Structure formats: structure tokens, C-alpha cells
Amino acid sequence: MKIGPKVYWRKTSGEVIFITPQVESSSARETTKEDDMGFYPKLKGYDAEQVDVLKLEFDKYTEDFQKAINYRVNPDTKTMEFTYPSNSGSEPEKPLTDQVAELKWADLDNKEAIAGLVQIVMENAK
């Protein structure tokens, strides 16, 4: 079973407090927020009402976490935001993996549009 990491963050600021490790094991099981807050030393002492958790898919944002110089959870959208060396000092942005996926879809849309235009031109050339 593959269990992705969980990002624990402050509801007011989006500051990441702790990220649980992802697990790949046949004996692995999902844990609750209460389980984690009682088990992980970094979470002990926090008021559960002031902390939220974002469950990520297995291997989601692994590269983003490695390349980013900072990251947080946007409290309004409850999504990850990363600051990379190339945008340090500016606003956090979407994870690079999400940006790449969006660009791939946009590229596919462009290719379909071009194919449609080529077909129209070919039909009009007859």
C-alpha cells in the first residue's frame, strides 16, 4: 500500500509545521490527525483546532519540496505554494509539477487548434 505524506500547517498563516513521511508497505495503514498529533514529537503541544492537515498523493510534489527554498499552504485555497530560487522574494507560486501539467494541456489544445486550421485550409484549397 502507498500512503502519501500529510502536511500539517497553521490555519491562520499557512506555515507548515510538519510533513509526515510517505510510506510504501504492505502493512501500512492510514492514520488520523489525532493519531499523528499524539505520535509525532513536532506536533505535540499544538492545539488541534489551530492546525489543519493537507493529505497529498504518494510522490506528489516530491521534486517541488526538494527544489523549493520555502513552501506554505494557502489558507484560503488549502493548496501548496512554493517559492523557488528563481522567484525568491516574489509571491509564492503553484507547484512546478502543476505548472508543467497545465502547460502540457495547453500544448495539446494548441496542437488540436492547429490541426483544425490545417484541415480548414486544405478543404478551402480544393
Rank of each mutant, 00 (worst) to 15 (best):
T12R: 10
Y46M: 08
A106W: 11
E30D: 09
A115G: 14
G116K: 14
M80S: 01
P92S: 12
Y40P: 01
E30I: 11
N124F: 03
E57Q: 13
R72A: 15
V16E: 10
F65E: 06
D64T: 08
A28P: 03
N74D: 15
P92M: 09
D35G: 04
D109E: 15
D35T: 00
W105A: 13
W105I: 15
F58H: 07
S13I: 01
Q99S: 01
F18N: 07
F39S: 12
I19N: 01
P41N: 13
V51I: 15
Y61R: 03
K2I: 11
M80G: 02
K33T: 06
S90Y: 12
K67I: 00
M37V: 04
M80C: 09
Q22R: 02
R72C: 14
M37H: 08
Q22W: 03
E49M: 13
W105P: 13
D76N: 14
E81W: 12
K126R: 13
L96C: 01
E34K: 14
P21T: 09
S26N: 04
E102K: 10
T12W: 06
G45K: 04
Q119Y: 14
G45C: 10
I69C: 13
P85D: 03
K94S: 00
K78L: 09
E49K: 15
D35F: 08
S25V: 00
K78A: 06
T20I: 04
K33L: 05
K111Y: 13
L54A: 00
I69Q: 11
E81H: 06
I17M: 07
D64W: 10
V53E: 04
S86A: 12
Y8M: 02
V100W: 05
Y40I: 03
K94N: 04
M37Q: 10
E57W: 08
P41F: 10
N70M: 02
V16Q: 11
I19M: 07
L54K: 07
L96R: 09
V121P: 01
K55V: 09
S27W: 00
L103H: 10
G38V: 06
K60Y: 05
G4V: 04
A113N: 15
E57A: 14
G89L: 09
T97G: 01
Q22N: 03
N87A: 08
M1N: 06
M80E: 04
V118P: 14
E57I: 00
W105K: 14
E81N: 02
N70W: 07
I17C: 08
Y46F: 15
T20R: 00
Q119R: 13
G4R: 03
L43F: 00
F58S: 04
G14S: 00
S26C: 04
D107Y: 08
E91L: 14
W9K: 05
N70S: 12
V118Y: 13
D36E: 03
K104V: 12
F65Y: 09
S88K: 15
E24H: 08
A28I: 00
Y61W: 02
F18C: 00
A68H: 05
M80Q: 07
D47Q: 14
G45N: 14
